[in-house]
């Protein structure tokens, strides 16, 4: 069935009605929990993520991990049993979630000013409530918000986005689960959009070298678009928090 399906119809719309360069709808909220130091909820299309940040605090458990010049970033990724169509118990620490955890740490470490907190640790917990493609980027985006909510100093936003090729020709942004199944290779990029630094890049399959550049540019464009959306969310959050405490009126 997937064979006859084009990812991008001749009229230029994708299966869900988006155009090639459009993100899915992103909705997010900071400070959804009181217990952790920072938290955020993020929806990217139907992919729904909860992120919580604890720390910085003293290195717990194995003390030898502690670094004298920087904080240790510890990431834990997990998926809820009800997060996919099929209900399935997903033990923590299986191969896939370990991999995503490591990738998360790589992206976040690049953005956090870890040098400010030697001998300490920052814990980031991300849980997928619903998976509909692009899980890793959504986790990065949610974690960024949670870090901001926790007040941890960042160099800048770290955002991630996927991109792929429609009909082997047109680059398209923010791949949904349906498109992942039908389509070809997917490129995942996590970047610091303001400085344009790429902190993580992954391909699900090989791209032809002729295509890689334009797909990469598309993914970076996606990261910049996401940064704007997150930025708006942060501003309105601060306004909300501020107005309830009377900040907004004092300025």
């Amino acid at each position: 069935m997937s064979k006859n399906r084009e990812l991008l119809s001749k009229i230029g719309l994708r299966l869900d009605g988006r155009r090639a360069d459009e993100l899915r709808r992103i909705r997010c909220k900071l400070g959804v929990f009181t217990e952790p130091d920072g938290s955020a909820y993020l929806e990217q299309g139907l992919t729904k993520i909860l992120a919580a940040v604890y720390g910085p605090h003293q290195v717990r458990g194995n003390r030898s991990k502690a670094q004298h010049d920087a904080a240790v970033v510890n990431c834990q990724f997990s998926m809820a049993v009800f997060s996919t169509g099929e209900r399935k118990r997903r033990p923590r620490g299986d191969r896939k979630s370990t991999e995503i955890s490591i990738h998360l740490r790589q992206a976040l470490t690049a953005a956090i000013k870890t040098e400010l907190y030697p001998w300490s640790q920052i814990d980031v917990y991300v849980e997928v409530l619903h998976a509909d493609g692009g899980i890793y980027p959504a986790c990065v985006n949610a974690a960024t918000l949670a870090l901001i909510d926790a007040g941890i100093p960042l160099k800048e936003y770290v955002c991630a986005c996927t991109a792929s090729l429609a009909n082997n020709d047109v680059p398209m942004l923010d791949i949904s689960h349906q498109e992942e199944i039908i389509g070809g290779p997917t490129l995942t990029v996590a970047a610091l959009p303001m400085s344009g630094k790429i902190v993580l890049m992954e391909m699900s399959q090989r791209f032809h070298v002729d295509h890689l550049q334009k797909v990469l540019e598309k993914a970076l464009q996606g990261c910049r678009d996401i940064k704007h959306i997150l930025d708006e969310a942060v501003k309105s959050h601060i306004q909300d928090v501020g107005s309830s405490t009377g900040w907004a009126n004092t300025t």
Binding site: L46, D132, S176
Partner: peptide, 22 residues
């Protein structure tokens, strides 16, 4: 940004939810 949800059941009654942008 209005999103609609389309449900359909396939095979062994998996619930598929898909976005539909208007």
């Amino acid at each position: 940004t209005k999103s609609f949800i389309k449900k359909n059941k396939v095979g062994n009654y998996l619930k598929h939810v898909r976005e539909h942008y208007i």
